[in-house]
Computed example of a mutant assay.
Amino acid sequence: MAIHVITGAGSGIGAAVARRLHARGDELILLARDAARGKDLAAAFPGARTLVGDLADPDRLSWAFSHQSLPDRVDSLLHIAGVVDLGRVGDLTPKHWRHQLDVNLVAPAELTRHFLPQLRLSRGHIVFVNSGAGLRANPDWAAYAASKHGLKALADALRQEEHQAGIRVTSVHPGRTASPMQAKVHRQEGKEYDAERWIDPESVATTVLTALDLPRDAELTDLTVRPGR
């Protein structure tokens, strides 16, 4: 039975991935931003463990984990949580920049640091669910795209650093996916949201599981997923 640490399991792509892994009997360790959210996740995924740590405050993750028991073994670390706040460069404040950089980039780096010893022992897998914005930047997306470009750089460097340890590292770059985050983006853009136009989170979950289940003789490094309609 594989053991997976997952962020963002409460909705969207993260929930879809967690459901698939839970259904096949894998063990889940779900990161929650607070104790109340942890109870919700534990109820949604019976038998799953929860860890409490706020990705919006990566400086305190070490303190939070010091008061909890981290698993001795981890087979995969799945970075799926993320935030987005659109705005033109001339309007974005340091608060907007820091929030997106902290949640989307600094916190994944800090989580990875904490779980690398366990992943080295298991010759595990780290998956970063990135974004199409991690490959290109469009108007109004500067802060989000910067965080996601940085996340790709983190994954690329980490892959080379941990190759000899047997750790596989995959970046998944979905296009617009039907999720609460996408609904928020449409509100910020002043556009009507139609979930049918965008990728189903289950399709992105299939991509993530394909990378995880690939035989050990190969590694999927970068995957791009685009809406098919």
Rank of each mutant, 00 (worst) to 15 (best):
H4P: 02
I6C: 05
T7W: 02
T7M: 01
A9P: 02
G10Y: 05
G10R: 05
A16I: 05
V17M: 05
V17P: 03
A18D: 06
A18S: 14
R24E: 04
E27M: 12
L28P: 12
L28D: 07
R33W: 00
R33H: 11
D34F: 07
A36D: 14
R37F: 11
G38T: 08
K39P: 00
F45Y: 15
G47F: 00
V52Y: 03
L55S: 05
A56Q: 10
D57P: 00
P58N: 01
D59V: 12
L61N: 03
F65H: 04
F65C: 03
H67N: 11
Q68R: 03
Q68I: 01
S69I: 11
D72T: 11
D72H: 09
D72Q: 12
R73E: 14
R73N: 09
L77F: 03
L78S: 09
I80V: 15
I80T: 13
V84E: 13
L86D: 05
G87K: 04
G87Y: 08
G87W: 02
G90D: 15
K95H: 10
K95Q: 14
H96V: 12
H99M: 09
L101P: 03
L101H: 01
V103T: 15
N104H: 05
L105Y: 08
P108L: 04
A109I: 10
E110Q: 14
L111C: 01
L111W: 08
R113S: 09
H114V: 12
F115R: 08
L116R: 01
L116D: 02
L119W: 06
L119C: 10
R120T: 11
L121G: 13
L121H: 13
R123G: 10
R123P: 01
I126T: 04
V127I: 14
F128L: 10
N130E: 02
S131G: 05
A133M: 08
G134W: 09
L135W: 06
L135K: 15
R136N: 09
A142Q: 09
A146N: 08
S147E: 02
H149N: 00
H149I: 01
A153N: 11
L154R: 04
A157M: 08
L158M: 12
R168W: 07
T170Y: 09
S171L: 07
V172I: 15
G175C: 02
P180L: 09
Q182K: 00
V185E: 14
R187S: 13
G190L: 01
K191S: 11
K191T: 15
R197K: 15
I199A: 02
E202D: 15
S203K: 10
T210F: 14
L212E: 03
D213L: 09
D213Q: 10
D213W: 11
D213P: 06
L214M: 14
P215I: 11
P215D: 12
A218R: 13
E219D: 14
L223M: 15
T224G: 11
T224A: 13
R226H: 10
R226P: 00
P227D: 10
